[in-house]
Amino acid sequence: MFDWYAVGALILLFSLFSTLRLAIGERARVVTNPVLAALTHSAWLLPLLVVFNMAFGMALLGMVSPWPPKAFEQVSAGYGYGMWAGIAAFLAMLITDIWVLWIPTQVLRRFAKPENLPALKYYPIFNVAVGGLFLAYALTR
């Protein structure tokens, strides 16, 4: 039987590629290989408009663990949604963790106006610390 969660997982896989490209930063900005460029295109980030808030909200409410392997177990076996839903949950949480811990730094670095760049010197530490606090809170739920 066709499983829509498999489609969701595939889309999230591309969102993960795109997130990783954004996370790497300057070195990954120009991708010359057209296939690689398509697979990591920022358009794949669009599902995150919904997925990020949902995954982050679920983690903070203690419904799904922010630790991806545990999220897989909970969704696939615990809630009984099956393997593909578990994989989708794994990918959604992995992406959410990367976004919370690191992507604000990279977005600010990449798109900041030159005059705002000096203020970003210690922002990565702030980003990891505050993002880490939220995730630590979610882990304890």
């Binding site: 919904v50 990020f52 808030n53 949902m54 995954a55 982050f56 909200g57 679920m58 903070l60 409410l61």
Partner: peptide
């Protein structure tokens, strides 16, 4: 869920 996620963001 969405409210909590976006609120904390």
């Amino acid at each position: 869920i969405w409210g909590v996620g976006s609120g904390i963001a």
